[in-house]
């Protein structure tokens, strides 16, 4: 294993410290709870949005903190849910008279930690609620889930909820936005390689040189099937078919398309996938209104990609287009 690591046990606080140092006007970092908060703090008149999960998926979720997105986020160890006290402190740090919406990707560990933290915060008089995200169409139940997993579609939930909160929407309204996005977003991923958690030092699963895992999870969970690798177009067709047939999306739909890199795939390859996905969307009669190509929800250095399609309406289009400032940026 070759990695830029000092002490594997300090990997998470060290990269978080780097994120905070690189964004001094935007973020505050609390090392004890592995928590990042907006420098400007919560606004008493606006709903706060928080999230937290295992590390290894950056820029989700600590790099999504900032005006127009999350109010605060915390990280567990690599691929491990954050501890209850960190979740509780994150909700407290984001506490607002307008309420707190906790966006949780559907994994058992994350749900249990946030369940408890939300109950504790509620007992303290904080108006906090949870919303669970489950956009991955690959499998119904998985290693760490009952029901579908939450993956890259989470970005759209955070973005739309963050924008709605910024515009002054109530907690009920922001929760309705979360539900609308989650109901209309679908994703599936494919892995070309495994990934190596720093503390483990070895790949979390084995994949042959000529094999791909179709429907892989962002913690290396098994997907639908293992296949021999084929062309980028053929793989994209497989992802597009699985994702677009799920709601199903239909001709005339206005959509956002995301091609998300899983951490070890160059941007050029993501654009090869995007080109085919865009062509397939037009052929299916979709109007591609917004597109996203890059890394939004990764799995350490896994080579691979996921395709996400979100059905839009006027409200969601406006929320996605609203400005936001986070540590994840390209300029």
């Amino acid at each position: 294993m070759k990695k830029f690591v000092n002490d594997p046990a300090k990997f998470v606080p060290e990269f978080m410290k780097g994120i905070a140092l690189a964004n001094p006007d935007l973020l505050d970092f609390n090392e004890e709870f592995q928590m990042v908060t907006r420098k400007s703090g919560p606004s008493s008149s606006k709903v706060s949005i928080v999230q937290g999960s295992g590390s290894g998926h950056e820029p989700a979720h600590v790099m999504a903190v900032g005006p127009g997105m999350l109010t605060a986020a915390c990280q567990g160890a690599v691929f491990a849910a954050p501890p209850v006290d960190a979740c509780y402190e994150t909700i407290k740090a984001a506490a607002s008279d307008a309420g707190v919406l906790v966006l949780v990707n559907n994994y058992q560990g994350d749900r249990m930690a946030w369940d408890m933290a939300t109950e504790m915060a509620t007992a303290e008089g904080i108006n906090a609620r949870q919303f669970w995200i489950n956009d991955d169409v690959a499998v119904e139940d998985s290693l760490y889930t009952v029901g579908r997993r939450g993956v890259a579609g989470n970005f759209f939930v955070m973005k739309a909820c963050g924008a709605a909160a910024e515009a002054g929407a109530s907690l009920d309204e922001v929760e309705a936005v979360a539900k609308k996005v989650n109901d209309n977003v679908r994703s599936m991923g494919v892995a070309l390689t495994s990934c190596i958690p720093p503390a483990k030092g070895t790949p979390i699963f084995e994949l042959g040189d000529d094999e791909i895992e179709v429907g892989v999870g962002i913690h290396g969970e098994p997907g639908r099937r293992r296949e021999k690798i084929h062309s980028a177009d053929a793989i994209t067709e497989e992802l597009f078919e699985a994702v677009s047939s799920d709601i199903p999306f239909k001709s005339g739909d206005r959509v956002a398309i995301m091609v998300n890199g899983l951490g070890g795939t160059p941007i050029t390859e993501l654009y090869v996938i995007y080109a085919k996905a865009h062509e397939l969307a037009e052929k299916a009669g979709f109007t591609v209104v917004r597109n996203y190509v890059g890394e939004y929800c990764t799995s350490l250095e896994m080579a691979g990609a996921s395709l996400t399609i979100l059905k839009l309406d006027d409200e969601l289009e406006k929320l996605l287009a609203a400005p936001a400032e986070t540590a994840a940026r390209i300029f």
Partner: peptide, 21 residues
């Protein structure tokens, strides 16, 4: 409750932690 939830491993952490909470 927080210490138990955080440091007790496996499913016992949230289960015993919930009891204390």
């Amino acid at each position: 409750s927080m210490l138990v939830s955080k440091h007790v491993g496996g499913s016992s952490g949230p289960i015993w932690g919930t009891g204390f909470m």
